[in-house]
């Protein structure tokens, strides 16, 4: 066995023993790269995800909802921060990963490329999108990479609060006026399929899955998680007295799970490749914020440096 092979074997043994890998531990380069890709995409998703919901903050229908929505969007910013920090433990700076986002090299969750048209969309996003995020992220709390796993524990607590808040908005609408009920149904109709797409391509098409499973970055396949989503959401939709826009959805006694229809994979891939309804706007908004913030970041840096120099020369005069 070469030295690298024995390192790799020890690494895999530790993973198999459910040990956590920490930043200073030896890890295969591909493990590091895979994590950087996944964690940075996750971070970008949190931050880009602020935009569609942020779109409704100024129009929230009452003060309680306004505060709830602002706090939620702020939580997502916090998730972005923890995740960018987790990336940094893998040896890549926030500037570098942001650059990958702004140049279109890095992806983020496609769901945020859909527009928020009515207040009900805020309910539907909290319920469905944060719901899907929870299903994806709860297993990540046991991810083999320590900093990512720990970030996810914190994040998941907040995501389940978001989901409850979103569902509560939907319940209020579903029990409201006919117009409100219609608004809620329309939001489900538009958000359901994109939410199912959040779990990624079918297992047969998924390129990174097998290795990620072996490294215990991933614990369940895309299709397994998608099935859980359908099984979780269907009864909740029934309680709302609303429906999912899928005529094929039906309880399958034998499987003990719901059958459901086929995702429009052409739509999925076109949004992934940048041709969704809001891809250009979302990216443009992030780039604009970043570019317009350049002078602020420069100034903060220049000021900090000046303060350092001042402190140093203060020290000298005191010594003298």
């Amino acid at each position: 066995m070469t030295e690298i092979q024995s390192l790799e074997k020890r690494f895999q043994d530790r993973i198999d023993a459910e040990e956590r890998i920490e930043p200073r531990d030896w890890m295969p380069e591909k493990y590091r790269k895979t994590l950087i890709r996944q964690i940075s995409q996750h971070a970008h998703s949190e931050v880009v995800g602020m935009l569609p919901e942020g779109n409704w903050i100024t129009r929230a229908p009452n003060l309680r909802r306004k505060l709830g929505l602002i706090a939620k969007v702020q939580d997502e910013a916090g998730h972005g921060l923890y995740l960018y920090s987790a990336c940094e433990t893998l040896g890549i700076s926030r500037d570098e990963v942001l650059d990958q986002l702004h140049t279109g090299k890095a992806k983020y969750s496609s769901i945020f490329n859909y527009p928020t048209l009515t207040w009900a969309d805020i309910g539907a996003i909290g319920w469905l999108v944060d719901g899907a995020a929870i299903l994806n992220q709860v297993p990540l709390c046991r991810c083999s990479y320590g900093p990512y796993a720990r970030a996810m524990v914190r994040v998941c607590k907040e995501e389940s609060f978001h989901q409850r808040q979103g569902y509560e908005i939907m319940l209020t609408l579903a029990n409201g006026t006919p117009e409100q009920k219609e608004m809620a149904q329309d939001a489900i109709n538009r958000w359901w399929w994109p939410s199912l797409m959040m779990f990624g391509p079918n297992d047969s098409e998924s390129t990174h899955s097998a290795q990620s499973m072996a490294w215990r970055i991933k614990r369940f396949s895309n299709d397994e998680l998608r099935q859980r989503m359908v099984d979780m959401i269907k009864p909740q939709t029934d309680i709302l007295g609303l429906t999912l826009p899928d005529p094929e959805i039906k309880w399958n006694e034998e499987r003990g799970a719901h059958d459901f229809g086929e995702i429009d994979w052409d739509e999925f891939w076109s949004v992934v490749k940048g041709d969704g309804p809001c891809n250009k706007e979302r990216l443009a908004a992030r780039v604009k914020a970043h570019e317009e913030g350049q002078w602020v970041r420069d100034a903060a840096l220049a000021y900090a440096e000046k303060q350092e120099v001042r402190k140093a020369s203060d020290g000298k005069t005191k010594v003298a």
Partner: peptide, 20 residues
């Protein structure tokens, strides 16, 4: 609140949102 998601840097986005 209009600035939420559009701040010059994530930390300040959060800080401004806090004040809001």
């Amino acid at each position: 609140a209009e600035l939420c998601g559009h701040g010059p840097i994530l930390e300040q986005d959060i800080a401004i949102t806090n004040i809001s």
